[in-house]
Design a protein around this nucleic acid. Structure first.
Lengths: 192, 192
DNA sequence: TAAAAAAGAATGAACGTTCATAAATAAATT
DNA sequence: AATTTATTTATGAACGTTCATTCTTTTTTA
């Protein structure tokens, strides 16, 4: 138990180190030597926890994506309307992106990069099923446009990555008023 | 003249090779040796045209961004309404992303990656001024919401990158009907 | 005391860049 | 117009460094 606990801690330290390095210079900056040093571990030790660098990055992606979607679907009321639940999810995602900047920034870097295996990326997509299901319900109730989940995602969720990047580069501040406007834009794009 | 021409051709060959390699494996796959080989040139020759790898990638970014915005602002009618011009620009961008997939995919990879200098990225942003000016006009006329250009961009243009990526991964097909729906979503998100 | 976990050193390959030199072109001199 | 000289352009090999990964040995744990 203590052993297992220690192992988990070391694995987490490695993933966290990778996250930090990738964020601050891309995948090319996250060499195994640097990851090891940042996690206070020998390079060789990494290979007790991961098959390869690719495997490590893939697992990091899935871990982060999981915690993102966990945060997104938290505190949903089962008796709420589709519109209310969507709004809740949307602001949950915003909260994640505002408070877990490293994780969010990493995910957005993964999304447009050959950094992650296509297979792993697909698996990450499945974490979003609750949202897709909600959209199906919304379409059935006639309150959401008859659009594919890709379109719905592209116009309501994906823009958040852009806004977050702009805020991180100090080009744009995401205060409450701006976020309220942003949510309205998102909803307007898909509501009937 | 013939000399200058030849130089330009070689520069273009190098940029094209870089574009191709970055697209098919990220910046880490585009080593100077591979770029040189793909452009039929000695590694050393690259340094007659660029100061460094970073300089080469930066210049590639600006070149591609320029040709993207050139395409976006082509065939605009000066006596058209704001709405008409916005629609024209939007579909121009779609055309670019559908027909110049390599260039478009490269740009989307650059946007969320530390691959490009912040300074260079800023310069690329200025190419979009015509669009920003159009939005200002639209706001003055009361047909576009009073939102910052970042918000407007996030909800109307940025989603295209996502849709393009999905199409390239064969997860989504961007036919005329889908694009019409997408444009409507974009416009609905910012129109008053 | 046996097994598992971790370490540091070492691996060949690949990296971005530079070097001395060769080929190609232009200018200058016959 | 022909030939030499200067200048640019391009090269392949080599630079030192870093890469991802593995090997052997030591430390820790049960």
């Amino acid at each position: 138990m203590a052993l297992l606990q220690k192992s988990i801690e070391k694995r987490d330290a490695l993933l966290k180190a990778t996250l930090c390095l990738v964020n601050n210079g891309g995948i090319q900056e996250a060499s195994m030597a640097k990851v090891a040093k940042l996690a206070n571990v020998s390079p060789a030790t990494i290979y007790l926890y991961f098959d390869s660098k690719q495997d490590m990055v893939n697992q990091l992606y899935l871990d982060v994506k999981q915690s993102f979607t966990d945060a997104a679907f938290k505190n949903l009321l089962t008796d709420s309307s589709v519109k209310e639940n969507f709004e809740k999810i949307w602001f949950n995602m915003v909260d994640f992106k505002l408070h877990q900047k490293e994780e969010a920034s990493f995910l957005s870097q993964c999304d447009n990069t050959p950094m992650i295996d296509e297979q792993t990326r697909q698996k990450g997509l499945t974490f979003l099923t609750p949202l897709f299901d909600l959209w199906i319900k919304g379409k059935q109730q006639g309150i959401i446009k008859e659009l594919s989940p890709y379109l719905l995602y592209a116009f309501t969720i994906y823009p958040l990555a852009f806004l977050m990047n702009m805020e991180n580069r100090k080009l744009c501040e995401l205060g409450d008023a701006v976020l309220k406007d942003a949510y309205q834009a998102a909803w307007d794009s898909i509501k009937i």
